[in-house]
């Protein structure tokens, strides 16, 4: 797992490919053990996480403050399903986008976590990490 250091700075697609490759070649192991996570893994994971947040929160802000308020009136010149588009955004559209953002986040993060070996798969509620006590 610690060889993930090689992934530092690479796009996460490569990282995930690497992870699958490695998982095929290694015997089953618990990659959730805190000791196996190197400082570099964690840092790379955190950077990828922050990148996801910046991208998704930008979309969130654009939809809610942009489509919902700032250019809502301008969008009214278009129409969707009988609604002026800007009005539709304020009444329904923004909410649908919010739902989509959260599920995209969930899937994207899952992928990143697997790639960096910090995911919580098979981590039943009976496993207790000492770090919290």
């Amino acid at each position: 797992m610690n060889k993930n250091a090689d992934n530092k700075g690479q796009p996460e697609n490569d990282a995930s490919a690497y992870h699958h490759l490695e998982a095929e070649n290694l015997p089953p192991h618990s990659h959730h053990d805190e000791e196996t996570l190197s400082e570099i893994d964690v840092q790379a994971y955190w950077r990828a996480n922050v990148k996801v947040l910046v991208v998704l929160l930008s979309i969130w802000a654009f939809v809610s403050f942009g489509c919902g308020v700032l250019f809502s009136d301008w969008l009214d010149q278009f129409s969707i399903g009988g609604f002026p588009l800007g009005f539709w955004f304020t009444q329904q559209g923004t909410m649908l986008c919010f739902v989509a953002i959260i599920f995209i986040y969930h899937i994207w993060m899952k992928k990143i976590e697997r790639a960096h070996g910090v995911d919580d798969d098979d981590n039943g509620s009976d496993i207790d990490s000492g770090a919290q006590s």
Binding site: L53, L56, L57, W60, S64, G68, V69, F87, T90, Q91, T94, M95, F98, I101, I102, Y105, H106
Partner: peptide, 19 residues
């Protein structure tokens, strides 16, 4: 239309909460 801010505001918070 003015009232719609409550819809956007209350649901949009979930994105912040989740992320």
């Amino acid at each position: 239309r003015d009232g719609a801010v409550y819809l956007v505001g209350w649901t949009g918070g979930y994105v912040l909460l989740a992320l």
